[in-house]
């Protein structure tokens, strides 16, 4: 652990545009914006195909193929084609984040017990009401799982932005490798890993807070099927 201590105790690593706080902020910006854009595309789409049951196969096949796209390759190709900047970095990260959100939202809605939806209709709820008051709350654990997987992947993968010369925590890793400064590489690696674990923790707490206790099984709800 001496190299990590060497890295974090160096005052030069704590100030200015190449310090840890500035790099962390860049990293959070790339990740946050990408995740929001991906959620804005994948959540409504997943809800639509999950609720109506139409186009599910096509969307799943496309999402699975997109999972195989190598982010690094996509990133360098996008930059060669449309030029250098922050926006081109966001494109591969958004592509990376869409499949888990889409697939899990769809699976969550498809998994809602048909009897439950019939009961909701029987109580006089209409299509959108069934979706928002019954299906989404029941599907919430899987929807959150999709968002969590996407968030972790985006935070992890935003490190490759450094390869094409942009910022973020990946800078420490890539620069360390290029200049054979192992403390920088290892320090950056530990920081990214800690950030990913933090994201995991935030989603675990979020899940506890917003998923209905009846759905998560923390409160027994009569006879379990």
């Amino acid at each position: 652990m001496t190299w990590f201590w060497e890295f974090v105790s160096d005052p030069a690593n704590w100030s200015g545009p190449s310090g840890i706080p500035a790099r962390l902020l860049e990293h959070l910006t790339y990740s946050g914006v990408s995740l929001l854009l991906a959620a804005a595309i994948a959540l409504p789409l997943g809800l639509l195909i999950g609720h109506t049951g139409r186009g599910g196969i096509v969307a799943l096949v496309a999402a699975n193929a997109a999972r195989a796209l190598p982010t690094l390759g996509l990133l360098v190709l996008v930059i060669l084609l449309i030029g250098y900047g922050v926006a081109p970095v966001l494109i591969p990260l958004v592509v990376l984040a869409i499949p888990p959100i889409l697939v899990n939202t769809y699976a969550g809605l498809r998994g809602v017990d048909a009897d439950l939806r019939d009961a909701a209709r029987g109580m006089g709820l209409r299509g959108p009401q069934v979706l928002f008051r019954v299906s989404i709350p029941v599907a919430l654990p899987l929807i959150l799982l999709g968002l969590r997987l996407a968030a972790i992947q985006v935070v992890s993968t935003a490190t490759v932005a450094a390869f094409v010369g942009l910022g973020g925590l990946g800078r420490f890793i890539v620069d360390g490798l290029a200049t054979k400064q192992y403390p920088s590489t290892a320090g950056g690696a530990v920081l990214v890993a800690l950030l990913a674990l933090l994201v995991q923790g935030i989603f675990t707490v979020l899940q506890r807070v917003i998923v209905s206790p009846g759905v998560s099984g923390r409160v027994p709800v009569g006879k379990a099927g």
Partner: peptide
């Protein structure tokens, strides 16, 4: 949840 590039480097 550990990033791949981070683990490779470590």
């Amino acid at each position: 949840s550990l990033p791949s590039l981070a683990v490779f480097s470590l």
